[in-house]
């Protein structure tokens, strides 16, 4: 406890970098998953290769990805950019299927009605399909957020600044205070991400509250 009180600024700094290393990939991964998920829905022959193919990305061990990526990106092996790219790929891996399934869950009669009202394909996506897919996409995003927070700490091995450093620090010195603080920090961060996503999803789906989730 005294260790924590003496090191608050450092813990906060690590927590902040940890947060954006986990957070930016969420945004990038979602931005990429939306068009890919839409394509998987639009052209049914793409659904199986897309969901299975991008899902496979998740099976690449994170450490291997951190080490391999510099070869392709040209950034130094210690650069946090590699972590962001790797986690964006993981987020993408989790979200392509989620987005495709979320869009697919919009009832046929609603889709038909939208088409018959004279929505063009693009307008229909943004006005009807995407808003209705928000609850499903948010659920997938929560899984990706928690997974990102935990995978960021693997970056310790290549020396990226984040809360995971506290684990190795505590472990190396056989002094458990930083280790416990690191773990608690990660849990708090994961809960924060979860809370923010839940809040955003609630704001974007006022009809679900009004109808008790029946819509």
């Amino acid at each position: 406890m005294t260790w924590f009180l003496d090191h608050i600024p450092e813990v906060l700094r690590l927590a902040w970098t940890h947060a954006y290393l986990a957070g930016i990939p969420l945004v990038v991964g979602l931005a990429l998953a939306l068009p890919l998920g839409w394509l998987a829905r639009r052209y049914s022959w793409l659904y199986a290769p897309f969901t299975a193919g991008f899902g496979l990305l998740y099976t690449i061990p994170s450490l291997a990805l951190f080490v391999m990526l510099p070869l392709f990106t040209g950034y130094g092996i210690l650069s946090p950019v590699n972590v962001v790219i790797a986690l964006s790929l993981y987020t993408l891996a989790l979200l392509v299927r989620t987005v495709a399934d979320g869009l697919g869950a919009v009832p046929d009669h609603v889709q038909n009605a939208a088409t018959a009202m004279g929505y063009t394909r693009g307008k229909r996506f943004f006005a009807i399909e995407l808003p209705l897919a928000v609850p499903v996409i948010a659920a997938g995003l929560r899984v990706a957020a928690v997974s990102n927070v935990s995978i960021v700490s693997v970056g310790t091995i290549i020396g990226v600044q984040q809360l995971g450093l506290l684990f190795s620090d505590g472990f190396n010195r056989d002094f458990y205070d930083p280790l416990v603080v690191g773990i608690i920090g990660c849990v708090v961060l994961a809960l924060l991400f979860d809370g923010i996503i839940i809040l955003l999803a609630r704001l974007l789906t006022p009809w679900q509250r009004a109808t008790g989730g029946r819509a």
Partner: peptide, 17 residues
């Protein structure tokens, strides 16, 4: 064409959101 034709279907097809 579709904007000029009213369309009503079985389950109303209202936009739930």
């Amino acid at each position: 064409l579709r904007r000029g034709i009213g369309y009503v279907i079985q389950h109303a097809g209202l936009f739930p959101h």
